[in-house]
Design a binder for these strands. Structure first.
Lengths: 206, 206
DNA sequence: ATTGAAAGTTAGAGCGTTTAACTTTTATAC
DNA sequence: GTATAAAAGTTAAACGCTCTAACTTTCAAT
């Protein structure tokens, strides 16, 4: 017994044991705190307690670390989205508006993560895991819109309507976190705008 | 006369004469072609025919070059916006929708410029010239919405409505150029969506 | 004509990613 | 159990880019 745990400790000293996961966790944290543009592989190494060359035994390059972070981020967003719907009623106007608010909330709470997920990063976005998680996330929106349309006898393609809503909340999130609203309408209440615009985009009267 | 022009030529050999402007032009071109994230000061120097240290006699740092590019870009966008309105009628639904389409068109035609204008670049955005040009650009939208409201007896704050429209077209432009629509709705017709959504967001029936 | 400021130049420091070559552990096969 | 190959680390250094320091050339003003 003693020998085994001793072995494990020694192993930990050189062979980290879970470096891949440790680096992803470190990257996630560092990105949330300082933004992806300031993320240095070397910093993640410091957190994990290994040399700066170690990551390249587990990842192709810096981008592959970011890929892992982005798929994780999408999973988190999907979860928050679902929670918002659950709290306000599946297939209802309120539920759909709450999803929109959750989207913007996510962006406001984790701007660097949001930027990484939706910004200009072709290599990261091309990764299969990322695409899958992204599609899953949007799928939940389509689902809710379809339910709403069925419940309220509304004609129109659910996907098309979902895209319209996505477009709006995405614009709101982006303009918000990049400080563009501030330049033009300081102290703007985005949440209110979303609640007001959602029925308009669903083409129903409140 | 001859002596003067000779002087000018010699002057051009060492003292460039208009390096500041030449660098801005080079930067603008390089950014349009390759994206701001790949823009190297050194490349602009090559185009202008000076050493890599020369720019620092005219600009604080790389960001100050980008500032100049962004204010230029806003001026171009404002112009295109005005042209679109002029072509479809000031203060009309069509005119406003055309502004929206022009916004998205600008993004599609110059994605790197659009990203630089609205992305995460606090130092660049804080520059006074940039802020001014940005506000001027949005001012045109408010103007048109106010006109439309007056002409059509529509209640509601013009600024608020303009922000709603801006939010939508900004989301459309962003999702378009970053390839996010493609992941979910390939071959999506953004322009059509904008024409359909504009009356919804203005809260009028087509 | 002189001379100080403006606008260039060259050289190199500083920083991050990534590769190459080497070392230590781990796991397997006998 | 031990030999040995593969896995997972390490150190050292090359590369590419921004920006500074120190020096030079040209311009403009007296």
């Amino acid at each position: 017994m003693k020998v085994q745990s001793e072995t494990v400790r020694l192993k930990a000293a050189y062979h980290h044991g879970g470096l891949r996961e440790a680096l992803i966790a470190a990257a996630f944290q560092l990105i949330c705190e300082y933004g992806a543009e300031h993320f240095k592989v070397a910093d993640a190494c410091r957190l994990a307690g290994v040399s700066t060359a170690a990551p390249y035994k587990h990842f192709r390059d810096r981008d592959e670390i970011l890929e892992a972070v982005v798929s994780l981020a999408f999973a988190v967003m999907t979860e928050k989205s679902m929670a918002a719907v659950a709290a306000h009623g599946a297939g209802t106007l309120k539920g759909i508006a709450a999803m929109g608010e959750a989207y913007v909330d996510f962006a406001i709470q984790q701007p660097p993560l949001f930027r990484l997920m939706f910004g200009q990063h072709p290599d990261i976005k091309a990764a299969e895991r990322v695409t899958e998680e992204g599609r899953a996330c949007f799928g939940k929106v389509i689902e809710q819109v379809a339910l709403f349309c069925a419940n309220n006898d509304i004609a129109g393609d659910a996907t098309e309507i979902a895209v319209r809503l996505w477009t709006f909340v995405h614009g709101a999130a982006s303009l918000m976190i990049d400080g563009d609203y501030d330049k033009v309408v300081p102290d703007f209440d985005v949440k209110r705008m979303i609640r007001e615009a959602t029925p308009m985009l669903l083409n129903v009267r409140e």
